[in-house]
Amino acid sequence: MIDIVTQINDIRREVGSGRLGGSEARSVILRRRYDAEIEDVWDACTNAERIPRWFLPVSGDLRLGGKYQLEGNAGGEIVKCEPPRLLRVTWVFGELPPSEVEVRLSAGAGGDTTDFELEHIAIVDPEHWVQFGPGAVGVGWDLTLLGLGLHLRGGGIDNPGEWLQSPEAKAFMTRSSDAWRVAHEASGADPTEAAAMAQRTLAVYTGDPSAN
Score class of each variant (00 low, 15 high):
W54I: 03
Y68T: 13
S59H: 12
L145R: 00
R26L: 11
V41S: 02
L150Q: 09
R175H: 08
E71I: 04
S176P: 06
A198K: 02
D208S: 11
G21M: 03
P191V: 12
G207W: 12
I8D: 01
D190K: 12
V41Y: 00
G72Y: 11
N9M: 06
A74K: 05
R19W: 10
T90I: 08
A171M: 12
P167H: 05
I38L: 09
C81R: 13
E95M: 07
S27Y: 08
D142W: 00
R175Q: 13
I11P: 01
I4N: 05
M1S: 12
W163N: 07
N47L: 03
E37N: 11
L20C: 11
E162K: 13
L146D: 01
E37H: 12
G149N: 02
D40R: 14
T46G: 07
E193K: 12
S187E: 09
E71Y: 09
I2T: 07
E168R: 06
G75Q: 13
V139K: 03
F172K: 05
M173C: 14
V28T: 14
A74D: 05
A171N: 13
E37Q: 12
Y68S: 10
E162N: 08
V139E: 04
G76T: 03
G161N: 15
F55T: 01
G156D: 13
I29N: 05
L145D: 02
G72M: 12
G149Q: 02
A179R: 04
G110E: 06
S59V: 14
D208C: 08
E100M: 08
L62S: 04
V41M: 03
G18N: 03
L96V: 03
W141V: 01
A198G: 05
L202D: 02
A122D: 02
A186P: 06
H128F: 14
L30M: 11
D35H: 02
Y34N: 01
R13V: 04
R85K: 10
P167M: 03
A203C: 08
T46L: 07
E185V: 15
R32G: 00
D178C: 04
L20D: 08
P160Q: 08
N73A: 15
D158H: 09
